[in-house]
């Protein structure tokens, strides 16, 4: 675990948008539009990915092996052949977890310095 943790940590910086896409795929396999909707829903519309940004991220995550394209597709009646479905890989999950851990540590530091309180009262 320690080794894989190390690997995940050594992955280059995740942009917030990339992290959102990984988070969106954490529960379920999704197609592009569903990822967009999931991110939109979870952030209350604060983060809206454009198609160019979303597919640029998907291409990068695929190439880095953080997500994979699914070969199995829904039944023909519910399927659109243009749609492609994506799943978080084990490595992707580790990288996302490492990123979440990193953020958690930063939030802890911020709390210790009473920054969060200040922010709330502000």
């Amino acid at each position: 675990m320690a080794a894989s943790q190390g690997n995940s940590e050594s992955y280059g910086p995740l942009t917030p948008a990339m992290f959102h896409v990984l988070l969106a795929l954490a529960d379920d396999d999704l197609h592009g539009y569903a990822i967009f909707k999931e991110v939109d829903l979870r952030t209350g519309g604060k983060v809206q990915l454009s198609t160019g940004t979303l597919y640029g991220i998907i291409k990068r995550l695929l190439a880095d092996g953080l997500i994979a394209e699914l070969r199995t597709r829904p039944a023909a009646a519910q399927d659109d052949e243009r749609r492609r479905y994506y799943r978080l890989t084990t490595r992707g999950r580790e990288v996302a977890a490492a990123e979440a851990e990193r953020m958690n540590e930063m939030v802890s530091i911020a709390k210790a310095k009473n920054l969060l309180k200040k922010l709330r009262t502000a």
Partner: peptide
Amino acid sequence: DYGPEMELVF
């Protein structure tokens, strides 16, 4: 690779 799906999503 992604054009058709991007059209659909858009």
